[in-house]
């Protein structure tokens, strides 16, 4: 028995990642999946928006037009969020935080447009968590030096070092799993509604879309960026205060 009683065997319910076509990569068979395609679409949209924004800002006027106003509003909003959390360290991280904020937000709400959200694939969220992890530890070593890092590792007593190391490793895992599981649960729920309740799924799933895609997606984006900023601020410490 291969499928049996499980939901995944119901033909209508579909939320898995599908392989589109395989190719050979140094002797390994690697699949191009729906995640790659959705990611590509999201990136193309973002790049298109970025080029349009660049053109608009080159012809920027004193009294902003509609599009210029929108771009300025987005940038100002992101800057204010980052400055509110990171204070004097904000300038260096405005770009990174703004970029991942827009990227994750568009990924999360792409479910509204019929795509399978790329962030509902652990292969997308884990690199985001690892990026944060790298930045945290780069800044830790840069600002606290090796001595400070060792001191932090051995607090309150040297015997706690293994626990502190596990705590450090858990950061990217919990960050990425939180985002992944939230978006995945929304995707599964929508697939169940559209698959099993197909006969009565008229108009009212829109309310579920608002909750699972817009609200939950925006909250998780905010949380991911907020935690990233908090961890980085923590790693920098206040050596330059």
């Amino acid at each position: 028995m291969t499928n049996g009683i499980l939901l995944s065997s119901v033909a209508d319910v579909d939320f898995m990642v599908h392989g589109i076509f395989p190719y050979q990569f140094f002797g390994h068979t690697v699949w191009i999946t729906t995640t790659h395609i959705c990611l590509l679409i999201v990136l193309l949209v973002l790049i298109g928006f970025a080029i349009a924004a660049r053109i608009a800002m080159k012809r920027a006027t004193e009294v902003p037009g509609k599009f210029q106003n929108l771009v300025e509003m987005i940038v100002e909003m992101l800057d204010n969020v980052v400055k509110g959390v990171m204070g004097k360290n904000a300038a260096k991280f405005l770009n990174y935080i703004g970029t991942i904020f827009i990227f994750i937000l568009i990924c999360n709400i792409s479910g509204l447009f019929g795509l399978r959200p790329p962030t509902a694939d652990y292969g997308v969220t884990l690199p985001l968590g690892l990026l944060t992890f790298t930045i945290i530890h780069y800044n830790k070593f840069k600002h606290q030096k090796v001595k400070g890092v060792l001191k932090g590792l051995c607090s309150p007593w040297p015997i706690w070092a293994p626990i502190n190391i596990i705590g450090d490793i858990a950061v990217p895992i919990s960050l990425s799993l939180r985002l992944f599981a939230n978006v995945l649960s929304g995707t599964v729920m929508m697939a169940l509604v559209y698959g099993l309740l197909r006969a009565v799924a008229i108009v009212w799933p829109a309310a579920l879309h608002v909750y699972f895609d817009l609200f939950s997606g925006a909250i998780q984006t905010y949380v991911f960026c907020m935690l990233t900023m908090t961890y980085i601020t923590d790693a920098i410490g206040d050596d330059e205060a």
Binding site: L6, S8, S174, L177, A181, N182, V188, Y222, M226
Partner: peptide, 28 residues
């Protein structure tokens, strides 16, 4: 905003349970 942030972090343990359930059902 503080409440939403705290709630989203508190949600994590529940999501771990959800992940275990999903793995049991779909990854087998």
């Amino acid at each position: 905003s503080t409440m939403l942030l705290g709630q989203a972090v508190a949600e994590t343990t529940g999501l771990y349970g959800l992940l275990i359930g999903m793995i049991l059902l779909f990854v087998k």
